[in-house]
Design a protein around this nucleic acid. Structure first.
Lengths: 218, 218
DNA sequence: ATAAAATTTTACCAGTTGGTCAAACTTTAC
DNA sequence: GTAAAGTTTGACCAACTGGTAAAATTTTAT
């Protein structure tokens, strides 16, 4: 009893119009989880649908029943990611204490790198390839950065922190915090077995607190 | 007139035993240049021999006459890269002025990111995938970092710079400087058309000079 | 000029990959 | 219980990919 047209099209538009079944919800979650694992380790082109399917414990056609193409899976992961990724930045509060605000922004970004390294690597992969799928979202980021940069400029004008270019301040924070997730393979080797656990995130937090507030001058 | 065995094997062992012909030198250089372009944009698995061949203006079998496999090309690029990449770190001099040494290390790394962004992305791609091809070299790096960390610990003990974990200091410098090459696509959008030229590297250098010496405290 | 060596091309192959299709099976709503 | 809807499977395919073989062509040394 074939149900091709309706069966095939229902899940693909499920998120938009139809209400999703229990199985749909479970399997889609399962697939996205597996896909995050695979994409974050091998990049988009380096990942195969088969790999993702195996990791999810499904057959390839079964997986493709829930997501019509590899691109659609990737897109969904990226969309989810960006939401969480920008939250700490949104949280910067112009009425808070400037140095504390910056410190807690750094800490929150560092926690994201520690708790969601796969997401960080997914993002890094996307940007490395020239950000082909997220030009639009990057422009939203630009607006957000401009807005938050103005807060920092306000702090500078008020003489509350040292003069600097806020955009490069953000770049440096992104770079360092994400580095601990993205360059994990390098860091593990350099720190050796001793720095294997989450201890290095605490060491990093300590180092960055000091760097951003007082620098290295004695 | 077939010359299969000898013709096919000569170039493959050329670097080891035989002296290389003019054409060999030219074409190998051409291929490596093209491969750097392709690999740095798409990663190892995302790049095809055909892409590289087209970029180099050669046919695929012709390219494979000079490099027997895709891996061999990649390997050669990585080897070249690591040499230059570690040079600034080697240059840190224990007898120099501590803050100046660190500042000029940052500047040299920033110049590498500006002048060799493709190499930086090639490296980033490799580490992101878990550094499968360069475990050995990473251990050399580890030794070098330990050695240079001792220099910095010496400066700290002598009261010449603030107390900090030297390894995290290096991580932060690598992260930020390479970020300008690796996350170029993001930075371009955030800075907008104004920050398109090399001006952003000067802005970055200024920002980092200040950050690492005095931090943000007023 | 010519023969040997080096280079390039054409034709090809086997394995992988993203994706389709229709039939078989399971779950859900009544 | 049963019929409709939803899910899973196995067989399949066309395009792509890394790589090979041998013939054809060009370069080099004499």
């Amino acid at each position: 009893m074939p149900a091709q047209k309706s069966a095939q099209s229902a899940p693909s538009r499920s998120s938009a119009t139809r209400k999703r079944t229990r199985i749909q919800q479970e399997k889609e979650e399962l697939i996205l989880e597996a896909a995050l694992d695979v994409f974050s380790r091998h990049g988009f082109r380096g990942s195969t649908i088969d790999q993702i399917a195996v990791q999810a414990g499904l057959s390839k056609p079964n997986l493709l029943y829930y997501f019509r193409t590899k691109e659609v899976i990737h897109r969904r992961l990226i969309d989810r990611l960006l939401d969480n990724w920008l939250e700490p930045l949104r949280g910067i509060n112009k009425d808070g204490d400037p140095l504390s605000e910056i410190q807690s922004y750094i800490r929150r970004k560092l926690e994201l790198a520690r708790d969601f390294p796969r997401e960080s690597r997914l993002f890094a992969n996307e940007i490395l390839q020239g950000a082909p799928h997220i030009q639009e979202e990057l422009h939203d980021l630009r607006d957000l950065v401009e807005q938050k940069s103005n807060i920092i400029k306000g702090w500078i004008s008020a003489g509350k922190i040292a003069n600097c270019d806020p955009r490069h301040l953000f770049f440096s924070i992104w770079a360092i915090t994400q580095h601990y997730a993205d360059f994990d393979a390098q860091i593990k080797v350099v720190l050796g077995p001793s720095g294997d656990g989450d201890g290095r995130f605490e060491d990093a937090a300590r180092f960055l607190d000091q760097l951003y507030v007082d620098g290295l001058r004695k």
